[in-house]
Design a binder for these strands. Sequence first.
DNA 1: GTGAAAGCGCTAACAC
DNA 2: GTGTTAGCGCTTTCAC
Lengths: 354, 354
Amino acid sequence: MTTVRVTSGGNLVAGVSLKDIAKRAGVSVATVSNVVNGYRPVGEATRERVRRAIDELGYSPNLSARHLRGGRTGIIALAIPELNNPYFAELAEATIREAGKHGYIVLLDHTNGDRDKELLVCQDFRAQVIDGLILSPVQLDRTDVLNRTSKTPMVLIGERVYGVPYDHIAIDNTAASAAAMQHLLDIGRRRIAFIGAQADVNRQPAHLRLLGYRKALRTAGLPFDPHLVVTTAQFGRRDGAAGLRQLMTLPSPPDAVFAYNDLIAIGAMHAARELGVAVPDDVAVVGFDDIDEGRYSNPTLTTISPDKDGIGSRAVASLIGRLQGSRDDRPEEIQVPFALVTRQSTLGLDLVHR
Amino acid sequence: MTTVRVTSGGNLVAGVSLKDIAKRAGVSVATVSNVVNGYRPVGEATRERVRRAIDELGYSPNLSARHLRGGRTGIIALAIPELNNPYFAELAEATIREAGKHGYIVLLDHTNGDRDKELLVCQDFRAQVIDGLILSPVQLDRTDVLNRTSKTPMVLIGERVYGVPYDHIAIDNTAASAAAMQHLLDIGRRRIAFIGAQADVNRQPAHLRLLGYRKALRTAGLPFDPHLVVTTAQFGRRDGAAGLRQLMTLPSPPDAVFAYNDLIAIGAMHAARELGVAVPDDVAVVGFDDIDEGRYSNPTLTTISPDKDGIGSRAVASLIGRLQGSRDDRPEEIQVPFALVTRQSTLGLDLVHR
DNA sequence: GTGAAAGCGCTAACAC
DNA sequence: GTGTTAGCGCTTTCAC
């Protein structure tokens, strides 16, 4: 019996079910299910008949039914600020790919870096829809995460929240910042600015990239000048441009910029051009993320290159481990590798033509 | 009765069901369902009691059950070449946003512009998982689409396949190409190259942007020189760079490039820089897509700006219309607006500081 | 090795 | 305005 339902609009919806296959093959639905899933052995002849029926009728399992029965949905959410940031687009692609390998579908949620939206996601407003959550928080602090009551497994990525009972996958942001700063020091820069600090400094006293910046200054015996730290509302090119313009009005402007991410760095370089400030001669620029854009920008962008595929796949692996119970030890900080990639924005044209 | 299930891994999965609410509020499940969905009127007092029970117990509907019952999944797929192309990332964001408004979840599928993968998607390898499909084909031709047998509603976006029985949402690519070409002609260019033609010219005899290019040449009374048309394997920055290098080896190189998209244009500008070719003085460049990157590139990029939000929202609207039967007229070509945005890559620094 | 049947949570048809 | 119940397709327990 092929179910033919007529939707409200009069469209025909045909679904081939286990029952249809069972009837066609002259066996019970349980047997068909066992052929499909392989949970129990099935006789060779029977299996063959079922296979043929499946081929002929074109069966594919109904996920809603399977999930209803199994108490899960097969969907995990990836909550990121925005897809429009190439870093997150690349990360999303890696995550989707990896989740697909495990039979999971990825639902993308955008927080726009908005605190309320992040809280919503964290409190599991997708309850009953998703089996688990990978969250890249921008605004949430430790307390917010500790206050979470939802039982939906969650994995955190990115550089902010620490000391919470969730797996956390990221590169060593402090070490990465140190590497970026050391590079700027190595090429002789001494007045190094940071663009991309958080607005609400009280609630979010520090993030690791900024911490790394300050620490590197200290290590180098350089003074910390608060005027050289630019707070931005968002993390886009526009913010980077505004940041650099602001820095250039200082009585004693910087000779280098360490940007929170590549987009900010690219915005800063754009503004520098408009102001007639030469990169890297007047101001050297280092970004963070290694998005493709920075390989083709003019000048090309020196940056920290995190292992995005690694973050995506480790996050998925951790989450699915929790979902399936194969991972029930206590939460872990998982670090993936990074590299400093030096290009024209710090080294100048030396690199061209290689 | 709160269902508490223990997963294979020993995790507790608590689900609050309609039944739980019904018991708590002392009503039937039907009444609770009606309060939740509003299909039938419910008495004020009853409604209030149910509401409270829902609040207290924290009910949220089980989508799998709902969808099993309703014969649909609430999921639509958006199949695009890759998220890594900012154009598609922006489009995806718009699509997700719009679908969310209608209560649909978007599943992103990547084809990588691979013909086999596109065919797979088109043949509905997600049968039973998705209710409908928005496809942006790169390789499929008319016949491929006509051969489709799946009954899952589909909407096409992009500039390729025409004359098929599916809604198709796009800008007027021929007109847009004409506008881009006219601009290059207006600034005095006469040897205009095209980068980003399709490799398999036989199967895919022409795409609209290339057609628009040729047509514009004809209209302007300029000769068509096949050497000025560069075929690329993909549509990335790398392909644009290779394309420009190839063009510059010609005995008589172009004085302008019309690129299939912004990424190719940006790659071309990158290669120009390496070769010491000045943009726009030696070669003017026009792209297509208006991705953010082009607003901050050096030089900034003249481009065709399609209404991405419009494409996303119209595609979702069309598809959902088909799904719900509110749209059962015959397939339509739906055009959304576009604009030519002129920047430094054709006008030079005239534009800077404003 | 195979079958019968319960039941996951929900909506809607049918009663009252 | 409210309650009862069948059944969506599946997995799994219990029989044989």
